[in-house]
């Protein structure tokens, strides 16, 4: 990368997108956005133990099971992705 490119807005954005998962871009679709939000939410539930316990009580499961379920849901949080329109 050349020195001048470093300050280019696009390369800065690319850098952010590479560094921080979930950074959006101009062509972000509704599905991708929702997937990100859901993964963030699940990660937050897992990270905050009291919240995990709160869910565990509501669903009458053990906290360990609840954590596992949330991690599993991070694979496809919003179901299958929509079909791509090839243009």
């Amino acid at each position: 990368m050349q020195a001048s490119d470093r300050f280019n807005i696009n390369s800065q954005l690319e850098h952010l997108q590479a560094k921080y998962v979930g950074t959006g871009h101009a062509d972000l679709n509704r599905f991708e956005w929702a997937v990100n939000i859901h993964r963030d939410s699940y990660a937050s539930y897992i990270g905050h133990y009291p919240m995990l316990a709160y869910f565990a009580i509501a669903q009458n499961e053990s906290i360990g099971r609840e954590r596992y379920n949330f991690l599993q849901k991070m694979l496809l949080p919003c179901g299958l992705p929509p079909e791509r329109e090839d243009d």
């Binding site: 991708e32 997937v35 991070m74 694979l75 496809l76 299958l80 992705p81 929509p82 079909e83 791509r84």
Partner: peptide, 19 residues
């Protein structure tokens, strides 16, 4: 570890089921 990159792209659900 579980890699989800392919499952996110595949609308047929095959990649997800094979994850």
């Amino acid at each position: 570890e579980l890699d989800y990159s392919e499952a996110d792209q595949d609308s047929t659900g095959q990649a997800a089921s094979e994850a």
